[in-house]
């Protein structure tokens, strides 16, 4: 237990001093702030300078703010996803790999610490660091939402939880792969597997589920494939936002709604937990087998 705590503590100290994570965080924080303030200012200016033409000057202010908040959240979900991805790669590529690559692991593993304690400490620290960074970005996004006051706070919370869940799974995969191979190669392999292959499978599965692709064979194949790869957690907020935007802007959005990924079910969440456990096991197996 002492070994795990020591590994976790000093991994966190190290991660807190890595400039790349700080840069990602600052860019993310500035981006969220800029997005919120920018949207508010641009639409306010546009609405005050146009009468009856462009802009929502003929819409009541509450609906207008609700619309702005929807727009902000739509962008924020995308931005949080991207920054979550960057931070997952940033942590996953360095937390264990740098110890192995630099030779620090030689001194560490010659101490009376088991590989299990080392792995547990590393994973705990990596997850804690990711939670702190994503949590701070989420809190900032929530504060920016006060500019709009449209009552969509719960949507943000659920979406942030989904993003964090996805980034944890990806980070664990990168951690495990970077124990076997160079960390840049590991990141590329993880991206291809998690973001491209699994992403395409999930996307096609969604199209078959919503009836856009009607072929029974394709549906069967992708139903099977879907449960063989990790798939991203999706909050109901994504679909809710699209439906609300369509409702505000007018009907003609039925096709768009059909293409929106459906919210994750309990089965998806259980599958995510299973994938996380498998990836944790993979990290441990990789560290245990590693000779330094």
């Amino acid at each position: 237990m002492n070994g795990t705590l020591a590994v976790a503590r000093y991994t966190l100290v190290e991660l807190s001093r890595r400039r790349i994570l700080l840069v990602f965080f600052i860019i993310g924080a500035l981006g969220i702030l800029g997005l919120g303030v920018g949207l508010k200012v641009i639409y306010s200016v546009a609405s005050s300078s146009t009468q009856g033409g462009f802009g929502p000057s003929n819409v009541d202010p509450a609906a207008f703010n609700h619309f702005l908040e929807l727009l902000f959240l739509t962008y924020i979900f995308g931005a949080l996803g991207v920054f979550g991805l960057l931070i997952a790669y940033g942590i996953g590529m360095t937390a264990i790999y740098h110890d192995l690559d630099s030779g620090a692991a030689v001194s560490i593993f010659s101490k009376p610490v088991s590989r299990l304690a080392f792995t547990t400490g590393k994973i705990a620290a990596a997850v804690a660091a990711l939670l702190v960074i994503m949590g701070l970005l989420a809190v900032e996004a929530r504060l920016v939402m006060f500019l709009f006051g449209g009552g969509l706070e719960n949507a943000l919370t659920v979406a942030v939880l989904a993003v964090i869940g996805n980034t944890i799974a990806l980070m664990l995969l990168v951690l495990a792969l970077s124990t076997w191979m160079n960390n840049i190669v590991a990141a590329i392999v993880a991206f291809i597997y998690y973001n491209v292959v699994a992403g395409v499978i999930a996307f096609v599965h969604n199209l078959t589920d919503s009836g856009v692709i009607g072929s029974g064979i394709v549906k069967t194949i992708f139903d099977v494939l879907y449960w063989l790869v990790p798939h991203e957690l999706i909050s109901s907020a994504t679909g809710d936002l699209v439906r609300a935007q369509v409702a505000i802007q007018g009907a003609r959005g039925n096709t768009v709604i059909a293409g929106v990924p459906q919210a994750s079910t309990t089965g998806d969440i259980i599958w995510w937990a299973f994938v996380v456990c498998v990836f944790c096991g993979l990290v441990y197996y990789s560290v245990r087998r590693r000779e330094v």
Partner: peptide
């Protein structure tokens, strides 16, 4: 056991 490895290295940011 105390082990001083050849070309020792340590966590870089500590």
């Amino acid at each position: 056991l105390g082990f001083a490895p050849e070309e020792p290295d340590f966590p870089k940011f500590l």
